[in-house]
Amino acid sequence: MVKLIAKSPCAGLLPKTIGTVTLTEIDAGRMTLVAPFAGQKKSVSDALKSSIGVGFPAPNRTSGTTPRAVWCGRGQALIIGADCPDLEGAACVDHSDAWAIVQIDGADATALLARLTPIDLRASTFKRGHTARTLIGHMTGGITRLGVQSFEVMVMRSMAATLMHDLTQAAQNIAARADVGD
């Protein structure tokens, strides 16, 4: 009897704690990339709201928690944690397996990301629920603030090992600084 076993992008790599920072893989469940066709954004947003309770998010924003919608680039968003309804007015592309997603928690979470991304992560400008498409090291990906000391980072699934490498090295450098006496 043939059987296929599912494997997550960061299987065997996470979780881990380095210094004050903890890295955990997020199993986001179902993910659908939704890109409304011309003039359809409003109707798509309405359809999403009525079927899964979250609207189509504005640029650089997320909406909802579970399920949720995360803006992920020009004219598109990821519907995460629910089956995407049939949407006449949008291209709907299964992305459930396309991303490696890591949650970063801890006192140095912001300092860690500041070693990898050029975006402004200050709490006053990048608030809870804000998301950005940007660089993480040399990778293109997404960063979302989940809380005061908590972020979600997503990169292409195939780059999971590099993401681990980059996050680990940055976290180790920060942890090592704590040992430098003045």
Binding site: R74, P118, I119, A132, L135
Partner: peptide, 9 residues
């Protein structure tokens, strides 16, 4: 769409 960003993006 994204606001001010570093040139490397």
């Amino acid at each position: 769409l994204c606001g001010d960003r570093d040139r490397r993006e």
